[in-house]
């Protein structure tokens, strides 16, 4: 699997510190749309390897973290850059082209 699994210990380092964009999915194992996103996110992780990190956080396991962000439902997608949300929440299943577009918008931006 090419998707980074997030937890309490690595969230700061993997999501908040990098200068490059990070796509984060907030998900739950009881959520069918979240499960359907798995193969698609894996493809995106491969496609953007080295440029954009694709990561996911289980909202049941890490409630504190989920509660710190405007997650209104799952799946919710955000793009983080330098510790800030620069895009999102995008709620519900997303097509690959839509996620590509969301990521590329942030890659084009300077700073």
């Amino acid at each position: 699997m090419n998707i980074k699994i997030l937890n309490d210990y690595n969230f700061e380092k993997e999501v908040l510190q990098p200068k490059t964009p990070v796509l984060v999915e907030f998900w739950a194992s009881w959520c069918p749309p979240c499960k359907m996103m798995e193969p698609l996110l894996d493809e995106l992780a491969k496609e953007f390897a080295g440029r954009v990190l694709v990561a996911k956080l289980n909202v049941d396991q890490y409630r504190d973290l989920a509660a710190a962000y405007p997650v209104m439902g799952v799946p919710s997608f955000f793009i983080f850059k330098l510790g800030k949300i620069v895009s999102g929440p995008h709620i519900g299943a997303q097509s690959k082209t839509r996620l590509q577009k969301i990521i590329e918008e942030q890659m084009d931006r300077v700073g």
């Binding site: 009881w30 959520c31 049941d60 396991q61 890490y62 409630r63 504190d64 509660a67 209104m72 439902g73």
Partner: peptide, 27 residues
């Protein structure tokens, strides 16, 4: 630990309410 079945299939707002009432923690 902090298992809250009310959260199943519902808005994450439920989780936040639970956080406020019971404090943080992990499964």
């Amino acid at each position: 630990g902090k298992v809250d079945f009310r959260a199943c299939g519902q808005s994450v707002e439920q989780i936040k309410k639970f956080q406020d009432e019971k404090g943080g923690g992990h499964i």
